[in-house]
Computed example of a mutant assay.
Amino acid sequence: MIIITGATGQLGQQVISALRGQLPASEIVASVRDSAKATSQLGDGIQVRTGDFTQRRDLETAFSGASQVFIVSVDKVGKDATDMHKAAIQAARAAGAGRILYTSHQGARLDSPFAAAHDHAVTEEFLADGPTSFTALRHGFYAESALHIIGSGLRDGEMRVPEDGPISWTARADLAAADAAILADSGRIDGISAPLTGTEMYTMSDLACLASEESGREIKLVTVSDEEWLAATEARGVPKIYAQMLLGTFLAARRGDFAVVDPTLENLIGRPPVGMRDILRDFLQEPRTAVH
């Protein structure tokens, strides 16, 4: 039995959808905070259990009987994130899971200026310091995150960003397909995975050029100071802690933390990953009211 946490989230739903094509639904269990919501979203055949990362005892019950527990990292930063990850890992161990899989990040490093990458590295260390077999899935940087950062600039024709570096942006759907392939093959990858990335790296300048070509109009790139970008981001209503985390993306990219491509993802899904040109084309063709 495979337990999927965060099953109503964007990644979790896609992992379950991909698993449906490889395993009987009776072998898949969704662990979520809101079971009513999950039942309506996931459809027939998927057992739903209530599990909250802040309630370890409930998690142990939710994870009962699992051969594998797939832990989707939480949308938090700092100690809140690492405490919740550790609680889920401890619950999986206590429930007797044969393998724990955790969605980490290609840039996971304890010294990373990108706060989420630091949190992933802390969680990886906790995973490794235990008796249960584990797989840390080092996901490539979500392409959807790039759209979140520069989406308004793409729409308006001017991307105002700090100095950056190359990133191997990767489609979430491709990562979900790879995760499902690993789960369906009882782990397949032991320990920390190779970076699960797209096949190309892009700077912000590259993205501006691609978007210009796909939109048929010039999209300018304007490099601003870290301080100016941070102030503008906070002025748009982004909480300071998350604005600083997003700035950390640029700081880490400058030093090359995300400048890697690897064939592992393509091998797992059996086809070329979706490229940024296609992702940008789809985004630019959406109605202007679309929110990312």
Rank of each mutant, 00 (worst) to 15 (best):
A66N: 01
I189S: 12
H85R: 02
K86N: 03
S212A: 06
S168P: 08
T61M: 07
D179S: 12
D164M: 09
A30N: 10
L147C: 10
V48H: 00
K79D: 04
D44S: 15
S225D: 05
I149N: 01
A259N: 14
L110N: 09
T135I: 04
T132L: 06
A208W: 03
P113Q: 11
H292D: 08
V32F: 01
V29R: 01
E228K: 08
R57C: 07
S67N: 01
L207I: 08
L265V: 02
I28L: 07
A94N: 14
Q10I: 12
D119V: 09
G187E: 01
L101W: 00
F258D: 08
M204L: 13
T82V: 12
S152K: 10
P195R: 07
H148Y: 03
E200K: 06
E286I: 09
R277K: 05
L268F: 06
Q13M: 05
L284P: 15
E163V: 14
L11V: 12
G45Y: 08
S112L: 08
R236M: 15
D257E: 13
T289A: 07
L183V: 03
L284H: 11
Q106F: 12
A97N: 00
E266W: 05
G270R: 02
S112V: 12
Y242F: 13
G65R: 01
D262T: 08
R217Q: 15
G43N: 08
T135M: 07
D119N: 07
L110Q: 13
T50E: 13
I241E: 14
S104F: 08
H292F: 09
R236S: 13
Q47A: 07
P24W: 14
I2W: 01
T233Q: 14
I89L: 02
H148F: 09
P272H: 03
H148T: 09
E60R: 04
G256M: 10
Q55I: 07
D226P: 11
I150G: 03
T123R: 03
G51N: 02
E158H: 11
L207P: 15
I28S: 00
G198I: 07
D34Y: 03
S152N: 15
A115W: 00
S145M: 08
Q90S: 11
A30G: 11
E27L: 06
R160C: 11
A121E: 04
E227Q: 12
T197S: 10
A208H: 02
D111H: 03
T82W: 04
L59A: 02
T199D: 15
R255H: 12
A88I: 01
G12P: 13
S152E: 12
R236N: 15
S168C: 09
Q47P: 02
A178L: 05
R20I: 14
R49S: 05
E163R: 11
F70M: 05
M159H: 14
I4S: 00
A181F: 11
A208M: 01
K76S: 10
R99Q: 12
S31G: 14
F53D: 04
T203G: 07
F70N: 00
I71F: 10
S168T: 04
R109E: 06
T8V: 15
E213N: 11
D111R: 08
I46R: 08
G256C: 14
Q10P: 04
T103V: 12
A36I: 05
A116N: 09
R255A: 10
G248Q: 02
S31P: 01
P239C: 06
